[in-house]
Amino acid sequence: LGPKYVGLWDFKSRTDEELSFRAGDVFHVARKEEQWWWATLLDEAGGAVAQGYVPHNYLAERE
């Protein structure tokens, strides 16, 4: 699936296409579209919880 990303700060969605998340949440990014990335929010087991657009500057690649 490629690298995983972690949320740096809490983010509250403003549209139906955006995905709310908390700092520390883990994502798989499917598409990078300039300022907004289409991402899947993952649970602790790595299963998909939700999908939506997230601001790229709120995520960091997980080491």
Rank of each mutant, 00 (worst) to 15 (best):
V29T: 01
Q35I: 11
G47I: 14
G24I: 03
A39R: 01
V29D: 01
K32P: 03
E17N: 14
R22S: 13
L59G: 02
L19K: 00
E63H: 13
P55G: 03
P55T: 04
W37E: 00
Y58T: 04
Y53I: 06
V49R: 07
W9N: 05
D16V: 10
T40M: 11
L8C: 09
V6D: 04
F21R: 00
G47Y: 14
E33I: 07
W38Q: 02
E18Y: 12
K32I: 05
D25K: 02
E18K: 05
S13G: 15
T40H: 09
T40V: 15
A39D: 00
L19T: 01
Y58G: 05
A50I: 07
L8I: 10
V6H: 04
E61Q: 11
G47M: 15
Q51H: 14
D16M: 08
R14E: 13
E44N: 10
H56G: 15
D43R: 00
T15I: 08
K12C: 11
G7S: 14
E44G: 09
L42M: 06
A39G: 03
F27H: 01
T40G: 01
E17W: 13
Y5L: 02
W38T: 01
T15H: 11
L8P: 01
G7A: 15
T15Y: 08
E61G: 04
P3C: 12
Q51F: 09
P55L: 07
D43C: 01
R62L: 15
T15C: 13
D25Y: 07
R62G: 11
S13W: 05
V26S: 09
Y5R: 00
W9I: 09
V54Q: 00
L41P: 01
Q35R: 12
A23V: 08
Y5K: 00
N57Q: 10
E17M: 13
G2H: 13
E61Y: 11
E63D: 14
L19H: 01
E33K: 07
Y5I: 00
G24H: 02
L41C: 05
G7F: 05
Y53M: 09
Q51N: 09
W9P: 01
R22Q: 11
L42S: 02
Q51V: 11
E63V: 12
G52P: 02
P3M: 11
T15M: 08
G47K: 15
W36Y: 12
L59Y: 03
S13P: 06
V6N: 04
P3Y: 09
A50R: 11
G52H: 00
P55N: 07
F27D: 01
R22D: 05
P55H: 07
L41Q: 02
T40P: 00
E18C: 11
T40K: 03
D43Q: 05
